[in-house]
Design a protein around this nucleic acid. Sequence first.
DNA 1: GTCTATACTGAGATAGAC
DNA 2: GTCTATCTCAGTATAGAC
Lengths: 185, 185
Amino acid sequence: MGTRDQLVESTRELLWERGYVGTSPKAIQRRAGAGQGSMYHHFAGKKDLALAAVRRTAEELLAAADAQLRSPGTAVERITAYLRREREVLRGCPIGRLTQDPDIVADPVLRAPVDETFAHLRARLAEVLGEGRDAGELPATLDPTALAATIVAVLQGGYVLARAADSPEPFDQAVSGVLALLAAH
Amino acid sequence: MGTRDQLVESTRELLWERGYVGTSPKAIQRRAGAGQGSMYHHFAGKKDLALAAVRRTAEELLAAADAQLRSPGTAVERITAYLRREREVLRGCPIGRLTQDPDIVADPVLRAPVDETFAHLRARLAEVLGEGRDAGELPATLDPTALAATIVAVLQGGYVLARAADSPEPFDQAVSGVLALLAAH
DNA sequence: GTCTATACTGAGATAGAC
DNA sequence: GTCTATCTCAGTATAGAC
C-alpha cells in the first residue's frame, strides 16, 4: 500500500473515531507514518483528504449492504439478516456519524457522499419491501418508502442509543422491536 | 440573567451546533459576551462548563417529553403526538448528537446525563406501551421495552437521515413508517 | 516525492492587577 | 467578579531544500 493509501486509511479511521472537526492533519500524518510534505503533496489539504476517505467508506458500506439485501430469501428474511448482521455497534456508523459534523453538513461537496449513501440504502430497502408486498408476504397497504426510512432510522438511532448507554443492548432491542412489528404485519 | 447563566446558555447552543470537540472556550466567551477571567472564575474549565450545559439541556428535554407522554389520550395517541410534535429536525437532537463526541462518550461524568436521558425516555415510553397493551389497545404479545427502544431510535435515526439529506422529509417518513406498523398492530 | 523550516492563528489555561 | 497579560502546544498551511 502506497503512502497515499496509508493517508486515506488513516483518515478513514480517524473520521470514524473522532469526526471531521476532531481530526487534525497532524494526527493523520502520525497514524499514517507520513510527513507534512508527503500529505500536502498527495492532497490539497484536510478537506480534500477527507473527501477521498468518505467516498471510499461510502462505497464499501453500500457494497456490503447491497450484497446482503440481494442474497436469496424472502423480503423479511433478507431484512432480518441485514439488521441482525454482525456490527461493531459501539463504534457507530462511519457514515451516519458524519451528519453530526457541522463542517461536513455545511459543505455540499463533503455532504454529498453521505446523502447518496442513505438515499441509495433507503431505495434498496424500499425495493425489497416492495417485492415482499407484491409477493403477498407483506400487507398490500404497506408503504415501502416510509418503512425503508424507518428501518434505516432504527439502525442509525440504535447506534446512538448504544453509544449513550455504552452497551449494545438498546441497539438490539430497537432492532427486535421493529422486526416484531414487521413479523406481526 | 447573570454572566454565569449567559455562559451556560452559550455553551448549550454551541454544543448543539458544533459538539464538544468543536466548541472552544473562546467561542463560548465571545457568544456570552464574557471574558476569560469571568469564565474561569465561574467554572473550572471547558469540561465543567459543558457538564452544567448538558445537565440543563437533559432536564429540559425530559420535562418536555414527560409532559407530552403523560397528557390524556390512548397509548397510540400519545405516542403519535410525541413523534409528530413540532421539531427543528435539521438541527438534530441536542442530546443525541453528543453520542458522536469521542470526548463525551469516553468520560463517564459527561456521558452520564446523556445515558440517563435516553434511559428515562425509553422507560417512560415502555410505560405508555404497557398501558396500551394492558388496555387491549395493543396486542398482548407486544414487548414494551423493545418497542420503546425502537421508537426512540426512529427519532434519533430520523434526525441523522434528515441532516444527511438536508431535508426533514426522511425524518417524517421514518415516523410515518413506524406509526403505520403500530396502527396495523 | 519527501523533508525541514517557518508562519500565523487558535485552544486551553494560569497569574496577578483592578 | 472581571480584565489583561502571558504561556505552551496544536491546527493548518506554505516555501524551499534535497
